[in-house]
Amino acid sequence: MSLLTAGMPEIQLDNVEMRYRTEAADVLALHQVTLNIAKGEFVSLLGPSGCGKTTLLRLMADLLTPTGGNVTVAGKSAKEARLARKYGIVFQSPVLYDWRKVKHNITLPLEMMGVKKSVREEKALELLELVGLQGFADKYPWQLSGGMQQRVAIARALSMEPEILLMDEPFSALDEFTRERLNEELLSVWSKVRSTIVFVTHSIPESIFLSDRVFVLSPHPGRLSAVVDIPLPRPRTSGMRNSQQFYDLVSRIRGSFEGV
C-alpha cells in the first residue's frame, strides 16, 4: 500500500553504517541499513535498547554523520535538509527553555527563520489549539505537567511547518494512560498536517497503533531485521487496541524478535 503512494521516497537510507571508535573497542552501532520512507507516511523504528534506533533517527536529523552509506532526506543530503529546515524534531524529554513562556518556546524555530513577530504569535496560538493547550500560551514550562510539556514540544516542532517530523521516544517518560491519549492526539494532529513522521519507540503496541509500517531493528550489531505493514484502517480508534487483528500484529512483531 505504502509503496503505491510513494513517488520519490521522502527519506532514503542506503547501506548506512555507523561505527563508534572508542579507545577500548570499535562498536558497530548500525550495520548496512537500507530503507525507504514515503512522503506522508507514518513509520516507527522499533527495537530494544541498544539496537540503534535513536542513532538511525539522529542520522536522518544530521545530528550524527554516518561512517558509511548515504542518507537522503527530501531529495537532499541530510545536512542540506537540516539547513533547509525540512524537519522538526521532538526528543524524549521536552527540552523546553525555562526562560521562555510556552508560546515563545513554540515560536523559537520561527525566530530562527526570521518570521515576523505578529505572524509568529498567531501561529503559536493556532498550534496550541491544535495540541489542545489553548489558554496556556503565557504559562512558563514548569507550570505544565509532563504530558502537556511534550505537547508543547510537538507544537514547537510543527511551528515551522516541516515536511518531516522526527520523534525520538517522545512519550516514553509518560505514564501508560497519558501515553495512549497522546497517541490518539498525535494521530489527529497528523491527519491535519499530513507530514511524514518517523517515530522511535520501544513499545510494540504504540508502534502498531500509530504506524503505516514498523521497521523492526535488532541489536549487536544494530540492523534492520523486519519490516511489518500495519493494515489497520484509518482513522484509528482506541477500540482497535482490543481487536484480534491488533493482537495478531503484536505477536507477529514479537515473533520477529525471537532468535535474536
Binding site: 537540516r82 533547509a84 529546515r85 522538526g88 524534531i89 526528543f91 523559537l108 527563520m113
Partner: peptide
C-alpha cells in the same frame, strides 16, 4: 541539538 536541528 535542538538549536542544531534549526540550523541555528
Amino acid at each position: 541539538e535542538l538549536m542544531h536541528s534549526y540550523a541555528a
